[in-house]
Write a protein that binds this DNA or RNA. Structure first.
Lengths: 338, 338
DNA sequence: ACTGGCACTCCTGGACACGGAGTGCCAGAC
DNA sequence: GTCTGGCACTCCGTGTCCAGGAGTGCCAGT
């Protein structure tokens, strides 16, 4: 594959992304100083089409890149454009004003949507990769407790616990001390084992209560596999006629399904720094015509993912740079709050 | 205004809502057994148009209701259709499975969207109409606390507090006792006054710390005017060509603006049980072609609002019934958890 | 006060022609 | 061998025209 052919592909990708219209040989020869005529470009285009990098919507139209073409562009041709200093400062300032984890996530997702002009998705720090910072028991009535769990990422989970016997204030303090002694600092992934033995460690008369508490801890806090996700920028789906091929309907529906969004952000085990899934590289059927750029974030290790969703004809260098930068800043913030 | 004329208006509203096409005199005369001919209906229609209740998209088309027409329909003609027993059971079951307040809100907003096939909006219980159930202090480092506030509606707010001096465990317990003694059960609206005196009540060596704590309480928990809102069912905006007149763009954008959504749900002081704002009765410019049906909810008194947003040509009896029913069930649930 | 009839208006959809943009290919130049 | 200019061809998008259909307003008659 010729160097010039690659240049032609780059030209097609860039122009198509910019204008959103099929680009013809003449335009390529003129706007990008390749030093050859349109006829020569036509020959290269015929080759690129044969090889599957570009395609023609109809016989007498210009060419548009295929998913394979974008893939090549991303892998070998696109140079990531770092954010400007002003943008970086703005990102930093905006995120550091966050008052708690919820706020960090909310601000992040808005920021991503605004920077990339696309739909942004941010996963809350995954519970099963966090560890316990503190457990709190609040007595609401003598037989009703509220259990509050705070993780090292700042996430707060709360549950009600009905207990079988009336508790005194001291009982509550006892239980509180017990669960914190056992679980503080422990990874949630290791917690089930510890929780199993919890009831056995309590004073005999508190056994029944401790086991009710253990059940709630296990069932609804630790074993909870569902993940929370924040979305912003849905309005960007309608940008300059993006009008996502068919209708927006399926996309909008998918964006309200946590399960789908989690798939979108990629199987939880992917630890890659940054992933770009173009068109049908995507597992979710509704997004076969979209590109998803995702990055992991977290203090040290990855505790969640964030990403943006856009048309395959997106500004790859800019989008990739934005996602990467935001993921880094968020990681820094979590690091500081640890 | 004739009785029959009202019947003609009802027929036009019902048929237009069902078919989404202008309805002609012939259709009205046939489908609704009025016992008169099409020509007579035409005369009535001319009157209704003159009076501003209906209008013609173009000369030789059928009629469609105006906002004024819908208003009359809602006020005098529409009989609210209560939900079926099966629907009521489903609503009840789905909502009672909620595990905490966040879950209640999330489930509510989804339920509303699904029942009405429209965009649903639910405000989290407003902080300044709640009261303090419990305040918790967690010591993260000797100079750093986490403050957790739980309200009577189940809402949980958390903030970090940097304190000027190192604290012992006993210090933290002392402070915890102090703030709870002072604030537990108090309405947040009354809290600022109490918080002001807080530092004065602490042991002398804890004064500085207590006043740092008081500052956070006041500034970022109590005085916080921003409200949280949940949205669902945006995909319904694309239902059978709803395609909201112009483009979805402004609507989708508005749905991501908390401020706009709060306006949508109505000025906070409105205590009406159920409100229907049709077309330009709406204050928000982007929603001049929409109808918003809202209801207040809360245990006893109103602590928040919920509602749905749809095209002016919506199924009013069904929508009103759904919003009212869901608001009631949510109120019941909050009541139980109090 | 209601009805049937009639002329009129205006939208909708299909058919058709035409200009423009872009291609593929070929013969010739370097 | 590689590139270039030229030419015929294809196909889309637009505009125009026309016929059909739906619905109205009005009038005279019951």
């Amino acid at each position: 594959m010729d160097d010039r052919k690659l240049e032609v592909l780059r030209a097609i990708v860039e122009d198509y992304v910019a204008t959103q219209e099929p680009v013809g040989s003449k335009a390529v020869a003129q706007r990008h100083s390749l030093g050859v005529s349109a006829a020569t470009v036509r020959n290269d285009m015929a080759y690129l089409e044969e090889a599957g990098y570009i395609q023609q919507p109809h016989t007498s139209a210009g060419r548009i890149p295929t998913a394979k073409g974008y893939r090549l562009f991303v892998d070998r041709l696109g140079k990531i454009k770092p954010l400007s200093a002003a943008e970086r400062r703005a990102v930093h300032r905006f995120l550091s004003e966050a008052i708690d984890l919820d706020d960090v996530v909310t601000r992040t997702v808005r920021l991503l949507a605004q920077l990339t002009h696309q739909v942004a998705v941010v996963q809350y720090p995954s519970l099963n990769r966090s560890s316990v910072r503190h457990l709190e028991l609040v007595s609401l009535t003598p037989t009703r407790l509220m259990l509050v769990m705070i993780t090292d990422t700042g996430r707060v989970e709360q549950r009600y616990v009905e207990v079988p016997a009336e508790l005194t204030e001291d009982d509550v303090l006892d239980l509180r001390r017990l669960v914190n002694e056992q679980l503080q600092g422990k990874a949630l992934a290791d917690a089930p084992r510890i929780i199993d033995g919890l009831a056995g460690l309590a004073r005999p008369e508190l056994r029944a209560t401790a086991s009710a508490l253990a059940r709630v801890l296990l069932e609804s806090v630790v074993a909870r596999t569902e993940e929370r996700v924040a979305v912003a920028g849905a309005a960007n789906l309608t940008r300059n006629g993006n009008f996502f091929a068919g209708s927006l309907r399926p996309i909008l529906e998918a964006l309200e399904e946590e399960v789908v969004l989690m798939q979108l952000l990629g199987r939880a085990d992917s630890n890659a720094l940054l992933t770009v899934r173009i068109g049908d590289e995507n597992e979710v059927a509704d997004f076969r015509e979209a590109t998803v750029v995702t990055a992991g974030y977290g203090p040290g290790s990855v505790v969640g993912h964030m990403g943006v969703l856009g048309p395959t004809r997106m500004d790859y260098p800019g989008t990739i740079a934005a996602v990467r930068a935001v993921a880094r800043y968020v990681s820094e913030i979590l690091e500081q709050n640890r």
